[in-house]
Design a protein around this nucleic acid. Structure first.
Length: 321
RNA sequence: GGCGUCUUGGCCGAGUGGCUAGGCAGAGGUCUGCAAAACCUUUUACAGCGGUUCGAAUCCGCUAGACGCCU
């Protein structure tokens, strides 16, 4: 339903539209490249970073600076408050609408991704699930806390054997998601999966930025130190009262909260931030490397080289018509 | 110099004759509305040499190193 603007009528018109997707591990230089590309192609940037959505946490999420945000129009950065709940489903819908709008006046839109699932929601699409009341998840979370995961596993086995057979049964988040759909819609979660293929009205050119592992880690360490200099500790302290919000279950904040509480020293917290950032980068790489359509470049590759590649891709698409 | 205690994988740490300790770090991976989340898998050992024994990380001896006490 969220894709009902995709019709045969505007097929021709839309397929001359492009998304340049930039992926890669945290701290590799995606922001920098996206700014360059946006200015070169005279276009705007859509962010697919699930933490840069939140306006209260700019330092720890390494969001683009005020000047950068001013030089190129950005979308989905700082558009939410940490107190609002947000989901990929909502993001997919809103971002697709925004992209459609931008494509009316721009041939190319830049998508910069840090969050694999969010990038995928734009590029490939999610299946459509019914909306379920928020209190169902709250109930499930409570049941998990009181009775443990076994009871949820049992319920899933009955409610949706197919999902039960495939899902990671130790992962309570997945089980709860499946169950909230089962309970809320009285239909098995698996029933909503893999419906008709989502069509997209744009072509995708995917660019990955990478570096040797040790280089990535070194850059992460330096960036964390810089965040501390810029006042990450103060930012975290000021948000301590909101620590239970999902948006603050984020590298940089959860560790500093422990030092506010006195369980960790500041130095220990900083070490943990670096460690968790390294792990995050590793998971991002695992996710993004799976997409064989991505053209990978070393982070030091001249931006001109990347632009040339994109130009040639654009040309190859237009000759296909 | 003498006496004693100790030496387990990158780190911590259990194990006293046969049965994978475990944790952390690292590495690899999963992923359809909490995703910077959540979850899964996993390599490298018993300081060295020799002996006892069917069998030694575990018992004995020597060597090396660490720590403690004594002269």
């Amino acid at each position: 339903m969220m894709l009902n603007f995709v019709t045969n009528v505007d097929f021709h018109y839309t397929m001359d539209k492009f998304i340049i997707s930039i992926v890669g591990p945290t701290g590799i230089g995606k922001t920098n490249l996206s700014l360059k590309l946006a200015s070169h192609f005279q276009t705007e940037i859509i962010s697919a970073d699930s933490r840069q959505f939140y306006k209260e946490i700019p330092i720890g999420t390494a969001a683009p600076s005020a000047e950068e945000l001013q030089s190129i129009p950005h979308h989905f950065i700082h558009h939410k408050s940490i107190t609002e709940s947000y989901s990929v489903g909502q993001y997919e819908k809103e971002a697709l609408e925004r992209i459609k709008m931008l494509h009316k006046t721009h041939r190319i839109v830049i998508l910069i991704g840090g969050s694999g699932l969010y990038v995928n929601s734009i590029l490939k699409g999610l299946d459509t699930f019914p909306k379920v009341a928020a209190n169902i998840r709250e109930e499930l979370n409570l049941e998990l806390k009181i009775h443990g995961i076994e009871i949820l596993q049992k319920e899933l086995k009955i409610a949706d054997p197919e999902t039960y057979a495939q899902i990671d049964l130790n992962n309570s988040q997945r089980i709860i998601r499946a169950l909230e759909i089962c309970r809320g819609s009285r239909q098995p979660y698996s029933q909503y999966l893999n419906k008709e293929k989502k069509s997209r009205v744009f072509n995708v050119i995917s660019i990955g930025l990478e570096a040797e592992r040790s280089v990535i880690y070194q850059r992460i360490h330096q960036r964390v130190d810089k965040m501390i200099e810029r006042g990450l500790i103060e930012e975290a302290k000021s948000l301590y009262n909101y620590r239970d919000l999902n948006a603050l279950n984020t590298v940089g904040y959860k560790e500093l909260f422990k030092s506010v509480e006195g369980t960790w020293s500041i130095d220990k917290a900083i070490e943990e931030i670096k460690k968790n950032s390294r792990r995050y980068a590793k998971r991002q790489l695992t996710w993004f490397k799976k997409d064989s359509n991505t053209k990978w470049y070393d982070y030091q590759t001249p931006q001109k080289t990347v632009i040339n590649y994109i130009e040639s891709k654009l040309a190859s698409f237009s000759t296909k018509d």
